[in-house]
Write a protein that binds this DNA or RNA. Structure first.
Lengths: 113, 113
DNA sequence: TTCGAATATTCCTGTAAAGGAATATCCGCA
DNA sequence: TGCGGATATTCCTTTACAGGAATATTCGAA
């Protein structure tokens, strides 16, 4: 999992853009309008999102339509999966760690008693 | 979905910490050792992660054991869900947008036919 | 080719955040 | 109560990044 993806989503306006694009592809102007951003800032944020591979652009006439790219989302999903799995087994296993500590020290195996 | 979560994960070292904690709770010293961080930086990153609600601390003797908090991950999962759903219906529907454009123009309502 | 709409880029400034080094704090124990 | 290990905090400096304003670029149409 790449920190770049999170970095791109860390900025509130960019997160808003992503969530807006969830409803479908959209040209820059409309994005700026809906989110009440100045056009240059919208373009700049879209640039960052694009560099991070989160969105993709497709020119139509004199507009540039931006849309989401699925892959980073899929990667995030797989990443979350690894945590889900860890959860099931050793979730809150603080005691596991404590047990490790005990083992580390001189304490000899007391035969389970 | 909160940008704070992404912000916390946007820093490579913090992302490493999170992935390290996936294997179980761990005291600061061990985290610092394994990731080759200086202890103060480790503490500082853990502070950020803690403020973001991604980790939780539990004191044991003179150590402080950090562990993951499930909730932000669950929230991220739900968030991803909203995209998965959007995918299924209107994924790449660029043509939807183009159709909208057409509709916007003089094209009269055709009676829902 | 010229014009205008739509969009991208540049320059500037303020600010938030990260690492390094030093230091403070906390806690169990002798 | 004082000590030492473990951890947190502070101060400082450097750098990355966001917004504002102005400007450059692109593309289609006349």
């Amino acid at each position: 999992m790449n920190a770049t993806t999170f970095s791109a989503l860390a900025e509130p306006n960019r997160l808003d853009i992503i969530e807006l694009l969830r409803d479908g592809p959209m040209p820059v102007g409309e994005i700026a309008d809906r989110l009440e951003l100045h056009q240059p800032q919208a373009s700049k944020h879209l640039r960052v999102l694009s560099d991070a591979g989160l969105v993709e652009v497709q020119p139509v006439a004199n507009k540039r339509i931006y849309k989401l790219c699925p892959q980073p989302f899929l990667e995030m999903d797989e990443w979350l999966d690894s945590f889900r799995r860890a959860w099931e087994e050793r979730f809150d296993r603080l005691d596991d760690y404590l047990r490790e500590l005990q083992g580390m020290e001189k304490k000899p195996d007391n035969g389970g008693k």
